[in-house]
Write a protein that binds this DNA or RNA. Sequence first.
DNA 1: CTGAATGGCTACGAGTGTTAGCCATGATAG
DNA 2: CTATCATGGCTAACACTCGTAGCCATTCAG
Lengths: 185, 185
Amino acid sequence: MPTPERTSLDEIIDAAAGLLEKGGPSAVTMQAVAQAVGVKAPSLYKRVRDREALLGLVGAAAADDLTARLETASGGLDDLLVAFRAFGHDRPEAFRLLFTTVVDADRLAATSAPVLRATTVAVGEAHALEAARLLTAWATGFVTMELAGAFRLGGDLDDAYRYGRRHLVASLTQDQVAARPAQGS
Amino acid sequence: MPTPERTSLDEIIDAAAGLLEKGGPSAVTMQAVAQAVGVKAPSLYKRVRDREALLGLVGAAAADDLTARLETASGGLDDLLVAFRAFGHDRPEAFRLLFTTVVDADRLAATSAPVLRATTVAVGEAHALEAARLLTAWATGFVTMELAGAFRLGGDLDDAYRYGRRHLVASLTQDQVAARPAQGS
DNA sequence: CTGAATGGCTACGAGTGTTAGCCATGATAG
DNA sequence: CTATCATGGCTAACACTCGTAGCCATTCAG
């Protein structure tokens, strides 16, 4: 390679992720990212197609981070739900990005894997996917609303999350309903 | 009033909502909104503080729309959940905006009201709020993920939503767990 | 008929993303 | 050891954004 590289794609993604978390999406400007890695803005375009692509990479990295956290979460349904919410608290902007940007299917599948394993042991293979969707949808919605400040009718949110976990996990494992097919009226 | 008004705040909000739905948040530019209502961009600032405020008004109007839909949804838990998702499908960008922008507490309370009424009859006053949060969090997460294209492991989404509705409604009304206090480990 | 307040406008400034094109570097071929 | 040339960085520039300043025409109130 010719002239010495003054930065790298990974460093750029990390810088963008840092700016995102500090100031929201509007703070991750090409110029700010460039400055953070010690380069001028146009140089970024040698590594990244455009800003949208950069945000996509940040989202993909965030998905990997979430996957890693879930993988090390011991495998119980409850632990997975706790780890999921913790990710949302640690990296709220990245969490939002995950459900705004479209991340590629493979990465999504990797993130789903630990949840699917857990629901398989909990409710059996037949309804593992539906159960996983029930759990992730609830957790996603809870954290989304929490981060958006949409829970404003009082009450402790930790308690509310615990209430939901108990309810859902119990409902799935006791599975009075899970045994029935999903079709119906 | 002096010079004849060529537009109105409501018209501006409607135009912005239309542009939002057609091309996402980035499409609702002051200039595009102005052109849509037959005016030049700077004139908008006579009615709206800035772009962020305009988006806030669009979000508030969307919240009112959602509230109205829920109010006319007959009051059953299942009907409320169906109406909620229908809103997300009809106005996906407005739906996203609701959980991105911060809308004021009063309006949020109005939106919650029909859900709270329904959960009150379903599980009693003691756990109405927690039940409402469980339901809205799940529905919000489901629609959010659906709109983000995050459900890519196959299966029919209508079925998946039905599955979740059954599970949650049954779990709440049978309330094997709901009777227990939310505290605990 | 006059005065004043108001909504619209043009012009402008600051800041954004992005492209074009140049230049210095340094690994490699001879 | 020299010459080549691909490459990463840079400056300059363009198009577009939001937002402000300030003017002008209108029309209502007296």
